[in-house]
Each structure stands twice: as structure tokens, then as C-alpha cells.
Design a binder for these strands. Structure first.
Length: 260
DNA sequence: AACTTGCGCAACCGCCAGTCG
DNA sequence: GCGACTGGCGGTTGCGCAAGT
């Protein structure tokens, strides 16, 4: 159409995100919520295009993302869904709320595609009841609503996740059943795997007091920098919570009601 | 120990659909 | 109805690391 792409603008930074950039982005979204990505670079001072910010958030920083190996159930589900839906990764990802479409796409391209081609994993007997899978996430997934809506981008999901995210740590510790529901997608077999995930709570300062923000810490950040980023981010958040750090004037914290 | 190869995955690119004025 | 614009999606690239030689 002749218009320039956002990423073509002069001064737009590309490449891997730094921990500092992650902090700024997370802080902003904590405060304003995801969405209106166009305003994110402007309001945060990040030298990134809006698309890059959205991608970083949805693929790496948003709460509830599960990292690590795919379980046999997840694997089977992806194969089954791929055979049914084709390369509709966003649609497939809606059945695996802990996984991003990018993760699923990468896993398919690097593992499952070869497996299927070699018939190491048969199409038959995957054993998944798709309706059951869908219903198990009915409160989180927008599948039946609009075709363009996906898990990763759905405001209800984000706010829902953050509502769980902001559960006081004391409640979390004393209510294991609730612990499971947010990050496990309903299959009992997978719950065992979810239980293995190491989870932490990071305190956030909030206008009305301290909110405990929980996140799955197995690998919330991405790539080789993830461990470093995680450490820096958590340390910063801890420091921020006690007023030791002030980065770019952006205060961390959730909206008063804990929802965007 | 040095080099090569393959893999995993974050990030980018380009297109499309939806929305708004 | 139309064009501008934004957000979302799928395909692809390229970097970093681990395994192999």
C-alpha cells in the first residue's frame, strides 16, 4: 500500500531484548495492560516498534507461559490438531493455553514434522477428545467466539491470568488446588508435570498496598538471556517494591482492582 | 583444544483482516 | 464506500549453544 512499515522507521532497535527493556515493557503492561501497542513505544521510551513489543509480550513475558519440554499429551494434541487444522498455529495454541503459537510452530517445525513424516507418530490413536480439550479451558479460551481472537491476544485471558497472578502468596501456598488450575490445562496427566514446575512469588508495589504477583519461573523469559533476564527482572522488582529502584519513572504495580 | 555441524528458539518480515474516521 | 492504520498470523531467518568430529 505504499506506507512504511513501523519497523522501517529510523532509530527503531532490532534484535534480542535486553533485561532492561523487558523490565520497562513489563512495568508498562502491569500498569496499563496489554493492548494499544502503538502507544507502548511512545509511552515507555522503548526504541522498539509496537509490533516488536507485542511479540515480546505475547511470546515471552506474559504470565502463564509454560516452557520446557512438551509432554506426550501436548505432542499428541499438536499432531492431531495440525492434521485437522493445518498450520493454524494460533488456533492450535488456543487448545494449549500455556504454550504460545510461536512455541508450537517451532516445536512442530523442529520435531513433530519430522516425526510425522517418518511415521514415528501415527495419526491414529492420538486419543484426544477435542471437545473435552476445548471444554477443559472453556473459561479461558475464546475459541467459540470470534475467528480472529486468540488466546495470546485475548484481553479476558490476560486479565484472567493476572487475576490469578495477583493472588496472595499465602493463599497460593495453602490452596494447592488453585495453584494447579491456572497453569495446567485440565489433563490430569499434565497436572503432574505442572506440579513439577517451580513457581515463585514476586511482590509488586501497588498504590493501595502490596500485591503478590505469581508467575511460573521455569522460563518466563526467552533464549540464552532468559536466566539472566529473570534474575535481573526479579531482583529489580524486589528492589522496586521496597523503593530502591526507579527506572525511567515508570512505577510498577497493577491497577487498584488488579484488573486492567 | 579447535573446528564443524545441527538444533532450538527468539525475533523479524510481509501479508491479511478488522476497525475507524 | 474508501483509504489509512493497527493488530494478528504464519513463514522464515539468524544467533547462540551443545554435540560431534
Amino acid at each position: 500500500m505504499g506506507r512504511s512499515l513501523c519497523c522501517d522507521k529510523v532509530g527503531i532497535k532490532k534484535g534480542p531484548w535486553t533485561p532492561e527493556e523487558d523490565i520497562v515493557l513489563v512495568s508498562y503492561i502491569q500498569k496499563h495492560g496489554p493492548g494499544n501497542w502503538r502507544s507502548v513505544p511512545t509511552n515507555t521510551g522503548l526504541m522498539r516498534c509496537s509490533k516488536s513489543c507485542r511479540l515480546r509480550w505475547t511470546n515471552c513475558l506474559r504470565p502463564g507461559i509454560k516452557r520446557g519440554n512438551f509432554t506426550p499429551h501436548e505432542e499428541g494434541l499438536i499432531i492431531h490438531l495440525q492434521s485437522m487444522l493445518g498450520n493454524k498455529w494460533a488456533a492450535i495454541a488456543s487448545y494449549l493455553p500455556q504454550r504460545t503459537d510461536n512455541d508450537i510452530k517451532n516445536y512442530w517445525n523442529t520435531h513433530l514434522k519430522k516425526k510425522v513424516e517418518k511415521n514415528q507418530v501415527g495419526n491414529a490413536s492420538i486419543g484426544y477428545d477435542i471437545d473435552r480439550a476445548r471444554n477443559s479451558h472453556v473459561s479461558m479460551l475464546p475459541i467459540s467466539n470470534s475467528g480472529s481472537s486468540t488466546y495470546a491476544s485475548n484481553m479476558e485471558n490476560i486479565s484472567g491470568l493476572l487475576q490469578r497472578w495477583t493472588r496472595p502468596s499465602s493463599q497460593k501456598k495453602t490452596d494447592p488446588a488453585q495453584n494447579q488450575d491456572s497453569n495446567c490445562h485440565g489433563f490430569q496427566d499434565d497436572q503432574a508435570n505442572c506440579d513439577k514446575e517451580f513457581r515463585t512469588s514476586v511482590p509488586f508495589e501497588e498504590s493501595s498496598g502490596t500485591t503478590w504477583v505469581e508467575s511460573s519461573s521455569d522460563a518466563r523469559l526467552c533464549g540464552a538471556q532468559q536466566h539472566h533476564s529473570l534474575t535481573v527482572l526479579e531482583n529489580w522488582l524486589l528492589d522496586e517494591a521496597v523503593g530502591m529502584v526507579d527506572v525511567t519513572g515508570i512505577s510498577t504495580g497493577l491497577c487498584a482492582d488488579g484488573v486492567y
